[in-house]
Computed example of a mutant assay.
Amino acid sequence: MLRVDGELHVHPKGFAEPITVYGIGGIGGDFNLILPKPETEYVLLSNKLTIQYIVLTGKHLGQEFCQCTIVKLSANGAEIHTQRPLGLLSNLKINLVMGTEKAKGLGDIYAKVVEKSVDNPNHFGIRFTGIPPEIAAVLSYLRQSYSD
C-alpha cells in the first residue's frame, strides 16, 4: 500500500546499529494519497557556477568555507563538484562567488546533501532548503538560458 521512493541507511546518535529510513511517496488503498515527486530535471551548465559552502553542524558553522562549482541545476537543487567529501544529509550554507570573493548583497542559500553520485565521487546532489528571492531569480534565469 505504500509507495517507497527511496531508502537511506543512517547511524543515528544513540543507536547501536544503523537503521534504514524510507522516503514514502504515497499510500494506496482507501486513502489513495500520493505526494508529487519533486522536480529533478537538471540543466547541465557549460560555464560552471562557482560557490562557497560551509557545513552546518546543528546550529554551528563548520571550520572553513570551501569553494566548489555547480555543474547541474534544477528548480529545487543542484549537483555540485567539490574536492571535499560530504556526508549525506549534511546541511550547507552557500554563497555565490563573483571573481574570488563572495557576491555582496545576495544573501545565503541553505541546502541539504541528498545524494552522492555513483559516477563521480566528487559530485553531490543538494536540495535547496532556503533561498533568497534574488538568488532564486538568478538561478531560474540560468536554468532557462541553458535549457533554450
Rank of each mutant, 00 (worst) to 15 (best):
A78L: 08
T69C: 07
Q67N: 12
N47C: 10
F65V: 02
Q52G: 06
T50N: 09
H60N: 15
L49A: 00
L45N: 05
L49I: 09
V71W: 01
Q63S: 09
E64D: 14
G77C: 11
S46W: 08
H60M: 13
T57S: 09
N47Q: 14
C66P: 00
A78H: 04
V55F: 03
K48I: 00
I51D: 01
K48F: 03
Y53E: 03
V71C: 07
K72W: 03
A78K: 01
C68W: 10
K48E: 00
I70H: 02
I51R: 02
S74A: 05
L49S: 02
T50P: 11
T50M: 12
I54D: 00
L45M: 10
N47G: 15
K72S: 08
I51K: 02
F65Y: 12
Y53Q: 09
C68Y: 04
S74V: 03
S46P: 10
G62D: 05
L44F: 12
A75H: 10
A78E: 03
I51A: 02
H60S: 15
N76Q: 13
V55N: 00
I54N: 03
L45Q: 07
I54Y: 04
N47S: 15
G58I: 12
V55S: 05
S74K: 06
L49Y: 05
L45W: 08
A78N: 05
T69M: 06
N47A: 14
L45A: 02
G58H: 08
T50C: 06
F65G: 02
I51V: 10
I70Y: 04
N47K: 15
C66I: 13
G58L: 09
T50R: 09
L61Q: 12
I51M: 02
L56D: 03
G58M: 11
L61S: 04
L56E: 11
H60A: 13
L73V: 06
L49Q: 12
L73C: 00
K59A: 04
N76V: 09
C66L: 11
Q63W: 01
C66D: 13
